[in-house]
Design a protein around this nucleic acid. Structure first.
Length: 500
RNA sequence: GCGCUCAUGGUCUAGAGGUAGGAUUUUGGGUUUCCAACCCAAAUACCCGGGUUCGAAUCCCGGUGGGCGCACCA
């Protein structure tokens, strides 16, 4: 049977094998922008998260978790309320929609638009008899389109589902400072759901209304930003950097550049920020992307978020959607703590220097991963159609099943029992093993190839005699015979390379 | 949100005013000493609501969802 090597085959695999389903709830027709993970997708996600957790613990990061529902004032302080609510005008006749402020700026380049209230903008539209550019009809009154999902708490208190996890982490600054014993920079991360009421979500899991963020924060002093010890250990690593000046010249190929060089050449300002770029790449590099699909792209000055001094995206090149942002690295300066200090009437000035009399509001460096985007891009870039088989070349660090165990035939009870015993033994060894006895042996290998399982162990007649089994490697399909006791080690270290 | 277009088993699809066919998948059984083999048996579908019609999965309207273009995407 011929398997087409195209994106349709990939998209159907994602559904068939239970990685991602949706829009959910499918039985009711679905709601755009909401997806569910099936067993394989969830296993993959859990593996990614626990890998990140393990690495971050080694790097001195601590984890927190905050509520999703947040009072209005938080987003007033953070600036999201202002920036996430767009004034929108709709044509009475053709129902075309425009951003009121943008529309006015276009129509009246000389007028001061910023800071006008909805009423004032309406007056301006009326008094200048501005009409719909599509059909020349009148506009309806201005409405707000809120990118944050709103809800009520208790007796009608307005609250919002957080549009990012980062801000909720910042609200813990006092507590964190204390419990992490003022060892600056404070290194913290939070993993959890965030919500955005996208106007028209598209591109599947890449732009969801409910999505998973995994966000690292460093609370750091101005001095440390230019003099971070951790930077020295990694400063000679090279990263594929595409700064905005290159993009301005329509260059799409990033420079592989040594981080110390990047600082000297003023592509990057601060060593601590350069360290964040490195760190973002370091975690991603554990997941098994091919090298050539990764780049860092700097935001142009007018693309940056309202809080950012510098911003780069870690992007992955996909077949279906081109370059996709999987991680944003932001220099948020002291913007957030300044604002939250002001709105909450707290004092966030702390002494971070050796001189205790010098106090300052910490700077924040942020590394924000979109987990759903990682899952999508990882699946797509690892998807391969080979001669008559689909091979999902997931790294063994993250594959849903680390190993599958098969009895060669299912009608020989002794072989079955031994296979099941080996399977249970592997599970007890904390190895994610999957047992399968249905269908021919070849079919079972193919099933696991589609799930990205790196190894398959088969128990045959010889196994009953000498306690050996065959172990098969997914990518090469080579098999060797090993003792049952050697299975865990072989899964960990891989098959010995066969000399040619 | 607008315009165009599409929606059939888990997946991929054929068909079309008279209630659905294939491939694959799944399940049970047989066979099988290592890469989607074979044999037997079975299971599963016309997105939702309304209208036209003797009869609608098919035609019409609306909704929902997908794709493309525009807008949006801090």
């Amino acid at each position: 049977m011929k398997i087409e090597d195209n994106i349709e085959t990939f998209n159907s695999l994602v559904k068939r094998q239970g990685f991602v389903w949706g829009p959910s709830p499918e039985i009711y027709g679905g709601l755009a922008g909401f997806y569910s993970y099936g067993p394989a997708g969830m296993a993959l996600k859990n593996n990614i998260i626990s890998l990140f957790r393990k690495e971050l613990r080694a790097l001195g990061f601590s984890e927190v978790e905050c509520p999703i529902v947040t009072p209005e004032i938080v987003w007033e302080a953070s600036g999201h309320l202002e920036r996430f609510i767009d004034p929108v005008i709709k044509c009475k006749k053709c129902e075309s929609i425009f951003r009121a402020d943008k529309f006015l700026k276009e129509q009246m380049p000389d007028a001061m638009i910023d800071g006008l209230s909805f009423k004032e903008m309406e007056v301006l539209i009326k008094s200048n008899s501005l009409t719909c550019p599509e059909c020349d009809s009148e506009f309806d009154k201005i409405e707000d389109y809120n990118l944050m999902l709103k809800t009520n708490v208790g007796a009608g208190n307005t609250a919002y589902l957080r549009p990012e996890t980062a801000t909720t982490t910042y609200l813990l600054f006092n507590r964190l400072s204390q419990v992490l014993r003022k060892q600056y920079p404070l290194k913290v991360f939070q993993y959890g759901k965030a919500f955005r009421n996208e106007i028209s979500p598209r591109q599947g899991v890449l732009r969801m209304r409910s999505f998973d963020q995994f966000e690292l924060q460093m609370f750091i002093s101005k001095e440390q930003e230019y003099n971070l010890e951790d930077f020295n250990d990694i400063k000679h690593n090279k990263l594929p950097l595409l700064d905005w000046r290159l993009q301005d010249k329509n260059i799409a190929i990033p420079n592989q550049i040594d981080l110390e060089d990047a600082i000297e050449k003023k592509i990057l300002k601060k060593p601590a920020y350069a360290y964040c770029l490195y760190l973002s790449y370091f975690l991603i590099s554990k997941l098994g992307y091919p090298d050539e699909v990764i780049r860092f792209r700097q935001h142009s000055p007018n693309e940056k978020a309202h809080y950012a001094d510098d911003a780069w995206d870690l992007e992955v090149n996909t077949t279906q959607f081109g370059w996709v942002e999987i991680c944003g690295i932001h220099d948020r300066t002291d913007y957030d703590l300044k604002r939250h200090g002001k709105y909450s009437k707290q004092n966030f000035e702390v002494s971070m220097d050796t001189n205790p009399s010098i106090k300052e509001i910490p700077q924040i460096l942020e590394i924000a991963y979109g987990i759903d985007r990682i899952i999508y891009t990882l699946l797509e870039t690892n998807f391969n159609v080979e001669d008559k088989r689909i091979n999902l070349k997931l790294s063994k660090n993250v594959a849903p099943n680390q190993v599958a165990v098969f009895p060669l035939v299912k009608n020989k009870e002794k072989i079955r029992l031994l296979a099941k015993k080996i399977h249970r033994g592997l599970l007890q060894n904390l190895i994610y093993s999957y047992y399968d006895e249905s269908g021919s042996i070849g079919k079972r290998y193919r099933r696991q190839d589609e799930l990205g399982t790196p190894y398959c162990v088969t128990i045959d007649y010889d196994s009953l005699e000498d306690s050996t089994v065959t172990i098969r490697e997914r990518d090469t399909m080579t098999q060797i015979r090993i003792d049952i006791s050697e299975i865990p080690m072989t899964i960990k270290n891989g098959l010995p390379k066969i000399k040619e």
